[in-house]
């Protein structure tokens, strides 16, 4: 049973972190904050309309509200001339507030509650089972695997446009890639993984899964493929250590994963800073040395 918790955590972590890479390197990390909050009303409405935890309905609901969130942010910014970051803050807090009110109002009718929205229930994800192709597996594992496959397919299929639109937007535009369209793809992917992860880790900790591994890998990567596999490795390491500590100490597993990822980030940044300082010094010394040897 415990092994399913590890497997679920790793799969969700991988989907989130890989979907988050392009948001992080485009300096749009706070968009994950916005999306993860904004999809809540979509989830609750899907829940109330279908009366069950129907994954495709919840995906649709969340997807609609994820895109709505982006559209509203753009509308506030472009039409009402509200500063960009303020527009983001206004839109996601409003949508999240709407979601929380729906949750509180219909708390009896759904098995969503305020707790679950914040915590997720990774521990319980191992128990909610369905049968698939004759196998008895946790529902989260099934949806998680499909999401991960989806993310991987999008990444492989659209590797080049992602690369170009992220690093050289002007060049990408002259090559005929629509920056706006690819922004929506990145955002849509982020909304999709948010939904799958929502039940397991909750609205706010999904931000940690999406942002922190990529941010950590970015410190120690120079090229995009390197960034992607290092992100994946860090995410797996964070999930394993986080789940172990969470179970050992009997505390919120999602919180523990987020915190572990934070510690990995801090250590990486500190080591990089130290090495960076040393290599700068060496570089400086050799530069001085070269100058002297040239003079002789």
């Amino acid at each position: 049973m415990t092994s399913w918790i590890y497997i679920n955590a790793i799969i969700i972590g991988l989907s989130c972190s890989l979907a988050g890479v392009f948001l992080v390197i485009r300096h749009k990390a706070m968009l994950t904050d916005a999306i993860s909050h904004a999809v809540l009303p979509g989830l609750v409405l899907a829940f109330l309309l279908t009366g069950s935890r129907n994954t495709s309905a919840m995906l649709t609901g969340a997807f609609v509200f994820g895109i709505l969130c982006i559209v509203l942010i753009d509308w506030l910014r472009d039409r009402l001339r509200i500063a960009d970051d303020a527009s983001t803050g206004i839109v996601f807090t409003s949508l999240f507030a709407l979601g929380i009110i729906l949750v509180s109002r219909y708390a009896g009718q759904t098995d969503l509650d305020q707790e679950c929205v914040l915590h997720g229930e990774l521990l319980l994800s191992a128990f909610r089972r369905i049968s698939f192709l004759g196998l008895n597996i946790p529902a989260t594992f099934l949806t998680g695997t499909f999401t991960l496959l989806g993310v991987l397919i999008v990444l492989f299929a659209a590797y080049r446009p992602f690369l170009l639109t992220s690093f050289q937007p002007q060049y990408a535009a002259t090559m005929g890639f629509s920056i706006a369209a690819w922004n929506y793809v990145v955002t849509g992917m982020a909304s999709a993984v948010t939904v799958i992860s929502f039940e397991a880790v909750g609205a706010i900790l999904v931000i940690a899964l999406m942002v922190v591994p990529a941010a950590t890998a970015w410190i120690i990567s120079k090229r995009l493929p390197e960034l992607l596999w290092k992100t994946a490795l860090i995410s797996i390491a964070g999930s394993i250590v986080g789940v172990s500590y969470g179970i050992y100490a009997n505390i919120s597993i999602a919180g523990s994963i987020a915190f572990t990822l934070g510690v990995i980030f801090l250590i990486t940044a500190l080591i990089k800073k130290k090495i960076g300082a040393v290599s700068m010094k060496k570089h400086h010394q050799s530069a001085i040395h070269n100058q002297f040897s040239n003079n002789q």
């Binding site: 706070m30 904050d33 942002v211 922190v212 919180g255 987020a258």
Partner: peptide
């Protein structure tokens, strides 16, 4: 900000 808020919130949840 995204890193700090999510990691500290995780710690808070623990």
């Amino acid at each position: 900000m995204a890193v700090v808020l999510s990691v500290y919130f995780g710690l808070g949840m623990m």
